[in-house]
Each structure stands twice: as C-alpha cells, then as structure tokens.
Amino acid sequence: MAEFSLPGRVHLGAAAAEPIRRLPSGLQHLDTLLDGGVPRGRISELIGPLSSGKTALLLALLAAVTRRGEVTACVDLADALHPQSIAAAGVDLQRILWVRPRSVIDGLRCTELLLHAGGFALTVLDLGAPVPRPLRRSIWPRLQHVAEHSHTALVILAPHRIAGSFAVMSLRLQPRQPLWRRGAWPLFEGFETALQLERNKLGDSEAKSIKLQAASQTLLSAFDLQL
C-alpha cells in the first residue's frame, strides 16, 4: 500500500482522454494559432459581422478538408452559399453536402442528423445574420455530444458567440478596411481583417490574433497567385 500512496501511482476517475484530432486549414499562421487546426468532435465558432471574411475563412477550411478527400456538410440556414465562390476557393464540390432548411428548427434537426450519420469530417451550421429565433440553449450540449461520438468537427458561423461554454473554440473576425483600387475605374479587391482567438478551451494560445486578407481574383492575380 505504501507503494500506491506515492504520488502518480493511483489514478482516480476515467481513463486518460483520447487526444483530439485536428483539421488543418492549410494556412500556416492559422494552424499555429489553433494548435494544429479545428478540433474534431467539438464545437467551434467563427464569429464576426458581415464583410469580416468569416465565409472566406470557412471556404478555405472546406477547401483544405475536401482536398484531403474527406466529406463535409453545410447546413445553410441563410441560404447564402455561393457555388461560384466555393469553387473559386478550391473546394471539391463533390465532397460537400449542401442542405438548405427552411426554418431554424429544421436546421438544427438536419445538423443533428448529419452528426449522427458519422463519416463527415466537418459539418458547418451557418446561422446567417441576424441569428434566427427561437434557438434553444439546450441544443448545444446535444450537438456537442453527438459530434463527440461521430468525431465530426462542428463549426458554427454566426455574427456573435452563440454556443456559450459548449464551444471549445471561438474565432472572432474583426473587419479592418476594405481594399479598393482607386482611380478612373475603381475595383473592389477584398478586405483586411483581424482574426482573434477569443476562446480556446483546448490550448493556451488564448487572446492571440493574426491578420487575414480576403482577396478578389483580380488582386490574387496581381500577387501572381494562380487560382
């Protein structure tokens, strides 16, 4: 018994937690900030107002995931996904299931069904802006439980934090300034945004931020980046 009384020999409670798998976004800065990517089996939030770049960031994540051959789903309550933008971001359109429910209740049911189905690496719940009502708080522990079982990363797109403490990670996007090419023929070229890790239950890199640029094709061409 003397041996067991030594510290570290007796473990109380459940077995050691399984290491959390991550979905890398393919953006080095972001993956460093997120300790490797978006956590699977957990709820994460992408929050920010319109024109903050959250949809562009989501598409970049979807592109990275589908390029690895994984299957994703998007519950689009706002009916706002733009297939041309998705294709331009490099998302494999054959690996994304687009669901457009007619009401918030249907949207939450669809999200739960997709999480239950298993096999989806990433499921997105796009709540749009403003967030539709009614949205019961009791839904989040339920979705979190199902996501944990299916090892699916659930990412919520909303203008503000919505899942409370059930979201292990909240990324806030703050728009800085739109980029315009001024002159006789002005052109909209994108915008700069600040990406701040507002909440991170799984790591210690809380309250850090990086800069992000969402750039139009014109601007990307100017950078000699081939779309």
Partner: peptide
C-alpha cells in the same frame, strides 16, 4: 459524397503578404 481519391482541383496555394494570410474572397 463517397470517400476516395479527391478530385484534382485548381486552388490558390496558401500565401502570405505583408504578414497576412491571403485567402480568396467569398460572396454570400
């Protein structure tokens, strides 16, 4: 929606400009 080899998709490689990660603009 079947697992398998991913399609060959032209995409923008991750880029950094002025210390910012650059991603394609999206329209809602």
């Amino acid at each position: 929606l079947q697992e398998g080899h991913p399609a060959t998709i032209s995409h923008m490689p991750p880029a950094i400009r002025d210390g910012s990660a650059v991603i394609p603009l999206a329209l809602r």
